[in-house]
Design a protein around this nucleic acid. Structure first.
Lengths: 151, 151
DNA sequence: CTGAATGATTTAGTGAACTAAACCATATCG
DNA sequence: CGATATGGTTTAGTTCACTAAATCATTCAG
């Protein structure tokens, strides 16, 4: 089935779990529910957008998005602005993580990952980078396909 | 700051996002809320446990765990048994994913990852495996440290 | 300029999952 | 054996984010 050197199988379980756990822990530290955290991810990933757009992305109704953005804004992770030309629209954008605690945690994580990187030669890092890239694309595609099945 | 060959930085954002997205999509396909999915993860990861133990792990009260296990059991992802010697206690254990849809999605993911693996030599796979292992350990540790900050 | 359309908010009501506490069943201790 | 502790369930009440629909503001089309 899977050899000890098959990272694909491992990713499926352990790394994936660890990533999810860290993500959840960071979300909790930020004081965000899983749903709010997910929405923030959408804004961060896709850049500033209107409330309607965010509603479509998250599958929420317009009314729910108002509350969602209220919470994100109040917690300091997002900002509401009016659209320059169309003043009915909002521009919802993510702001830098405010809390020092969150910055510290993120910084610590970055350092820890740097220590991992340190242990590989430049050539090896190229290999790993290639794998990470392919895997990311695969996970994304599978996420979309899997989501499509739910309908 | 981070070179194109620094997988650590990439993991922090893109792969991590993709992993979380897939995890969420799979959870949705399984008909589980994020919280229930997380609890199921605990049972899968740590093996059979009593309701009290699960309550401690998830931070829920005893009453809430009853409902939680009800849902998991009803959806076919967990099973309640009585403890052999102490018949007050439950033994809550995860069962194999029942729904054909979930199996299909999991299978498709496994195949997709196999196609990624295919593109690397055995030597390269060893490098990747080493990186995955170190990264997993790091993420786990950081998840725990981050969770501790929340308190 | 008026009327219809669009974007966001507000309001009222609903549902899901939670807590706290009362409640059974079983186990353990004196 | 009786009293007390422990594990899980049940119940009553609360909280919170959601939807649907009414509302306000702005834009666009005729």
């Amino acid at each position: 089935m899977s050899t000890p050197a098959d990272p694909g199988a491992r990713l499926g379980t352990e790394l994936s779990d660890a990533v999810v756990m860290f993500h959840e822990a960071l979300g909790a530290l930020m004081g965000l529910s899983a749903a709010d955290n997910k929405a923030l991810g959408v804004i961060r990933r896709e850049g500033p957008m209107s409330a309607r757009e965010l509603a479509d992305r998250t599958g929420l109704t317009a009314g729910a998005v108002t509350g969602l953005v209220d919470r994100l804004e109040h917690a300091g992770y997002a900002r509401r602005t009016r659209h320059e030309t169309d003043r009915r629209r909002l521009v919802i954008e993510a702001t830098a993580p405010a809390s020092p605690q969150v910055n510290e945690a993120a910084g610590e994580m970055a350092q820890a990952m740097a220590r991992v990187t340190e242990q590989f030669s430049p050539d090896e890092l190229l290999v790993v980078a290639r794998w990470v890239e392919l895997t990311t694309a695969t996970m994304r595609e599978q996420a979309v396909r899997t989501a499509a099945r739910t309908t």
